[in-house]
Design a protein around this nucleic acid. Structure first.
Lengths: 128, 128
DNA sequence: GTTATAATAGTAACGATTACTGTTTTTAAT
DNA sequence: ATTAAAAACAGTAATCGTTACTATTATAAC
């Protein structure tokens, strides 16, 4: 892979680095446009895909029909609020034991696992 | 919810019941058309969504951009082959311990968990 | 500076899904 | 059996996230 430097890509990475939530391509687009008013949505998608492919960011598919992107590539669990849609990090350590368990009775080759949790986030639980 | 009976819906359920793989709406459409040549794709989608909402079938989102549907609503893990895209059942029992662990340090209310595994299925591993 | 090619902006196309609309089925009450 | 209310339908249009295309611009090695 023969990468060339690009200010737009830098800007996308920089933006992602500032966010602890997990923005969608569209949110990235909206924000990066403040520094690059002419950046195209296609450029955002292409670079997010590229960065995810080379492992510099992570692409999250949490079942809401939209891809989310995470600057933090260390394995960690995510929580998706069924009401507000927010995607947040969980700090429970990730275990790989389950992969070993599954592999025992599975003929193919397991390379990884995706797990996310859903429910109501603290903001969406009615106070009293 | 005030359901009325429909032959089309029956047929969709019947078809799903015969399949151990996890067909997409389009596959359901193709097959149910053999008994109902005029059935519309919208009807298939509407009924799959309805059946999933009332818990008679399960909707699987395994990150391939297409929804899969499962007649078996008992909790079980799925494996997604990264090469051929097949979605298959795993027989490792599902544990809820992880939910309890996560709940300990999480302020919101966790209602469930989605886990799937990916890798190469036995068909896609080169034989020698 | 030249040159090769990666990256871009802008736009068109795509595929999965949902929404709309007028018609047909189902169901329950008469 | 007839009727009436509502659910479901077929057919089609629209939506939405994403990818593909194309002509132009930026990058980087020589």
């Amino acid at each position: 892979m023969n990468l060339k430097h690009s200010k737009q890509r830098d800007s996308i990475k920089e933006f992602l680095a500032t966010r602890k939530d997990h923005p969608t391509a569209d949110v990235v687009y909206m924000n990066v446009r403040q520094s690059f008013p002419n950046i195209s949505l296609g450029t955002v998608y292409r670079n997010l895909t590229l960065l995810a492919d080379i492992g510099e960011i992570a692409r999250l598919r949490v079942g809401d029909g939209v891809d989310h992107f995470d600057y933090d590539t260390n394995p960690h669990y995510h929580f998706v609020c069924s009401e507000c849609g927010d995607v947040t990090d969980l700090n429970t350590p990730v275990t790989n034991q389950i992969i070993k368990d599954v592999q025992e009775t599975f003929e193919g080759e397991i390379k990884g696992q995706v797990t996310y949790f859903y429910g109501r986030c603290s903001n969406c639980i009615p106070k009293n």
